[in-house]
Computed example of a mutant assay.
Amino acid sequence: MEFESDHSDGFDRIPDPLIYLIFNQISDIKTLIRCRSVSKRFNSLVPQADSLLLRVDRVISVTDSDDDDDSFLFAFLRSIIKSLHHLVSPSKPVPNPTRSQNSPAQILKEFERIRDLQIELPSGDLRLEKGTTIRWKAEFGKTLKSCVILGFRSGDGGNAEAELGGGGGGAGGGLKMRVVWTISALIAASARHYMMVEVVNEHKELESLLIKDREDEGKVVMDKKGLRECRENEGEEGEVNNASSGNGVGLWWRSNRTTVPAVRMRMRHEARMELSNGTKMFGATLVVVRPISSGVDIRSEVEEQNGDVGLALGAFGDDAVYCEAVERLLKSRSYILEMNSF
């Protein structure tokens, strides 16, 4: 008996809390699923891991497509056209992508008490012209709470400066392009948020959610308060979708992404900017987006500008280059734009 004890499995001596700690450090779901085949004990403990990273290999669009690399934004634009066609020639309903066996909701059903969750998408959602860079970070509860967007063109100047220089003090073609950047980022963010609503509602212990992409283009974040708001809103979204089902465009618009509320956008812009490391940015633009709330008075203007600093640096403060660009743009003159819900 003493001989058998000396040669017992070393894993059996490791207490459960330590194994949970190891699993949470691993975090990668594919690796954890493989761990379940190690032993019966591991098979029972892996679903208890509470800090997870899910790397998505391919995002399945809500529309039929021959192009597997289509982004949320292009799927959105294509579906608007298809919806118009469906008004004349109805077809079978599009299947709900959240029911796919490869969807995040289905994969995460294996885990019972997720607290911190990161979703990594295979690529960014925006298809940009060569030399264009956009970075964004959006915070959500039941809907958008804030979004910070940084965009610029790189190169030797030339057409980039002419197109986005905004020589008219923020007007003209440059302004149009910057508004397109902003709307595109908001659509991408609302699509990512919608993709995770089912997960949020099913995992009641979830306290932190981050949805990002491998290209580091954009991030959607939800904290404990935002996740609670999202769950409380579970029934309301269905009512909104049903109310909008009078035409095909409205139905698609509401049912495949979270509605962006009416927003107030504070935009700052520099036609040309050279950073301390030699990086040249043309048409550098910083946009801070907030929902329009009722009862906003003039006294909140200063507070709003001060709040921009925290939001912008919080979005890009982990990158020295972008942080320097943001700090300089925050000192620039700002322009206010407002946009209705869409």
Rank of each mutant, 00 (worst) to 15 (best):
F3C: 07
F3A: 11
H7T: 15
H7A: 13
S8F: 05
P17A: 02
I22V: 11
I22Y: 00
I26S: 00
I29Q: 00
K30E: 08
T31M: 00
L32Y: 02
C35S: 02
R36C: 08
P47K: 06
L53M: 02
R55I: 05
V56G: 08
D57I: 08
R58L: 14
I60N: 09
I60C: 10
I60F: 12
V62M: 12
T63A: 09
S71N: 13
L73W: 07
L73R: 09
A75V: 09
L77C: 12
R78K: 15
S79I: 05
I80N: 07
K82D: 14
L84A: 10
L84P: 03
V88W: 12
P90N: 06
P93T: 05
P97D: 04
T98M: 04
Q101Y: 06
S103K: 06
S103R: 04
A105D: 02
R113H: 12
I119K: 01
E120W: 03
E120D: 11
G124S: 05
D125W: 08
K130Y: 12
G131N: 13
T133F: 03
T133Y: 04
T133I: 06
R135E: 10
W136R: 04
K137R: 13
C147D: 01
L150N: 08
G157S: 09
E161L: 15
E161Q: 12
G165Q: 01
G168Y: 00
G170T: 00
A171I: 04
G173R: 07
R178M: 11
V180F: 13
A185E: 08
L186R: 08
A189P: 00
S190A: 15
N201W: 11
E207W: 06
L209N: 02
L209G: 02
L209R: 04
K212W: 07
K212Y: 08
E215H: 11
E215I: 04
E215W: 09
G218L: 05
K219H: 12
V220N: 07
M222S: 13
M222P: 01
M222L: 15
K225G: 06
R228F: 04
E232I: 10
E234F: 10
G238H: 10
E239T: 09
V240A: 11
N247L: 10
N247M: 10
V249Q: 06
L251T: 15
L251S: 15
R254D: 12
R254M: 15
S255L: 01
N256Q: 11
V260C: 08
R264I: 07
R268I: 01
S276W: 11
K280V: 13
K280D: 11
M281W: 04
G283C: 09
S293F: 11
G295N: 14
D297P: 05
D297N: 15
D297I: 14
I298V: 15
V309W: 07
V309H: 04
L311E: 03
A315W: 05
F316C: 05
C323I: 01
A325I: 01
V326C: 01
V326L: 01
L330D: 03
E338N: 10
S341A: 14
F342D: 09
